[in-house]
Amino acid sequence: MNYDLGDLSNPAKLTDPIDVSGWNTGELIEIYKKMRLIRNVEDEIARLINSGEVKCPSHLCVGQEAIAVGVSYHLRNTDRVFGTHRSHSHYLALGGEPKSLFAEVLGRRDGCSKGMGGSMHLFGGKHGFLGSVPIVGGTVPIAVGAGLAAKKDGHGDVGVSYFGDGACEEGVVHEAFNLAAIYEIPVLFVCENNLFASHMDIHLRQPSDRMSRFAEANRINVQTVDGNDVLAVAKATETLLEKSRKGNGPGFLEVVTYRWKGHVGAADDVDVGVLRKEKDIIAWKKRDPIQRLRQGLVNQRKMDDSEFNAMDREISKDLMRAINEAKKSPYPEQNDLLDYVYA
């Protein structure tokens, strides 16, 4: 086993509050709120899974919120973003409405995919989120094609492809890297390396835990950062996008993180498969991206705990309203089954 990521994959490290110096407090609060919103949405979906109301397979991203929020900070709604089986955060970070997400996972017609997709097939076209799918690696070449379209359009937009460390074991992903490089396509590859594919630890799957080696093999610009530091993610994204938007081809952002929940559903998956121990989960929770930003702001006396608590309560209240509205949405009509097959 090679631990090439060093401190990035060691949960005992990088647990300090985030250094917020140089950032505007208002922007930081917006970033915090977005991460908190995603965390709370996932917690609510976990509850709906446990109560039996959400039945579709739902892959929660608790612990990984900083990545989508940091990346989306530098995206615009004319960019073309594609996700994975674990895409609630990608959708929400771009501005997707929680009510539409709740309705979707509940199989309702007001869902972001009209109740036809469930958790694994999300759509948020007006926000630039063009689709997510659970076939591992499936959207990576599609994002490259969207980037090619952006290049042809010539307005400086980019394709964005979220995928995980597991996808790097799919051949098509390497085809996509090569195609993006050879055609100099403006696409940002965001590899959310959470060290697990389903139940399997990365060290049992690959000779190195560092995914950016695949990008380097294709001469793609690389940034490798702590995925639980939202400001580091945002900064690295900015660096890579600047090049892509100017026509200098793709960028590859490797963001190292850890999911607190199991592969699918609301359970923790302790000891499911191998190398996922309770002590690891406890250790990783100390690298909580939300708490670290919050503490950074508190330490700098930009905000105090009571203000944060009030903000959190407001978010929770809005979400309860969103869930109640989603539950009132009708189910798809029977004719939807055939009507959506062809345009």
């Binding site: 073309r80 594609f82 063009l130 689709g131 499936g138 990576v140 070449p141 599609i142 994002a143 490259v144 094609g145 969207a146 980037g147 090619l148 379209a149 952006a150 042809k152 359009d153 394709g159 098509v172 085809e175 996509a176 195609l179």
Partner: peptide, 9 residues
């Protein structure tokens, strides 16, 4: 996949 992506745009 590239063709699909471009067709979505």
């Amino acid at each position: 996949g590239v063709a699909i992506g471009a067709s979505l745009c």
